[in-house]
Design a protein around this nucleic acid. Sequence first.
RNA 1: GGUGCCAUACCCAAGUGGUAAGGGAACGGUCUGCAAAACCGUGAUUCCCCGGUUCGAAUCCGGGUGGCACCUCCA
Length: 480
Amino acid sequence: MKITLHNTLGRKLQEFKPLKPGVVGMYCCGPTVYHYAHIGNLRTYVNEDFLRRTLEYAGYEVNHVVNITDVGHLTSDSDQGDDKMEKGAAREGRTVWEIAEHYTQAFFQDWKRLNLVQPKAWPRATGYISQQIELVQILETKGFTYRTADGIYFDTEKFARYGDFAGIKLDDLRAGARVELGDKKSPTDFALWKFSPEGVQRAMEWESPWGIGFPGWHAECSAMSNSLIGPTLDIHCGGTDHIRIHHTNEIAQSECAHGQPFARYWVHNEFLKTESSGKMSKSSGEFLTLQVLVDRGFDALDYRYFCATAHYRKFLTFSWENIAASRDAHRAFRRRIAPLLSAWAGVRSGELDAASDLSAAQKDWQKRFEEALGQDVNIPKALGLAQSLAREEALSESERGRLLADWDRVLGLDLGRELPDPPPVEVSESERLDIERLFAARAAARAAKDWAEADRVRAELAELSVVVVDTPEGSSWKKI
RNA sequence: GGUGCCAUACCCAAGUGGUAAGGGAACGGUCUGCAAAACCGUGAUUCCCCGGUUCGAAUCCGGGUGGCACCUCCA
């Protein structure tokens, strides 16, 4: 199975070939655990999960690493701004360590609810302080650093290819820079190690060859990816916002320290937008968490399905109308394929040889599915194929069921599981009595075969947003 | 100011030179006392606008218009 990926390095589609046959080293920038992840953050992890599952579907073993940033970096790369972790701690009256633990666990819960595959490692920045110090020492020895009053900085003048990755000329970048220069020689220079301010006890600080302080915010990814995967990664993932600063700096420090390419393929995810305010971001205040969606009656997998409707390199617009449309499509899809999966479960016998016993028609669908995945992980196209296959009567139910069960290894919708119904809308006691009274009146009218009256009451209930469903076992109602 | 991206039906969205996938909503039908669910059917002579290249363009090129992102933390 051939996989083509859009590589930010060179900005073009490229056939994927790992460094070592059969194995993929994949590093993904994870969350800073000072607050809940919002659904925009989560879109990126869902998309990265589609990539990982595609690679595994193609037969690769994926050494997938996602970091947890539990060190509070400054909110600006100059010497200004607050430490996000300390800010979170102050906001909630807890220690930074408690904050880190709480939001890490919340993140893990979201991860599980979205049916994301566990990475091979979840390194925490605070667990790799010595490796980060070591990285800075190597850079210092090789002459890429200089010291100012507040820290050790990377000298971007010493790395000729600095602007290449982001595709920008250094002069333009420097001329347009908005950061305060401070003691830095160039606006593009960045901190590798920051000193704790004189007379200030920071909540998180460590001993180092340069005195007490804390690592710069790009150091952890270089140090942890090197420790867990190696100096050269096959794939490095992240959001598009990281291209300019974070990934550019990771490349600079990693390649100068190790003398070899840092990552061979860079895969960047586009943002989730809102209709009103554009990009969803924590710093702007308002943001939605997965829990808010769940509280509104959506399943986490409804959100996963929603993510699957747009390609990872395109903006996806969130609105309640759009997520509801995805939920409806998702639920209808599950209802439609349930008998297909059952038919397949009924005829399958033990383990099967992957493709050898597929019919010609099945092989044709299989080929189309793999092509969609291979085209830069085109999940929306693959999902469209799954929808079409579900209605394709040229294949028997079990033939379709077999393919869909297999495709779910990539779609990750956990299709074999029955999703619980959304929780009912809250109804106050007095409202409930009103509804019960009308509901009983309608039942009486139906018993008397007074259809006109029954329909009149149904309309009255509808005005209260109450839907009545009649089944052979009796009637029931629910508020929507 | 610098850099880059996007623009396809009511909504979401695939398509990247060969004659517009898929889903949701809506409408019509079957079923049902009526509804709900399910199933069947109906949708762009056209892809923001204007030029150009080509036998052929939503797809390539040029120029507009509109929206967005990055250049401070951010997925």
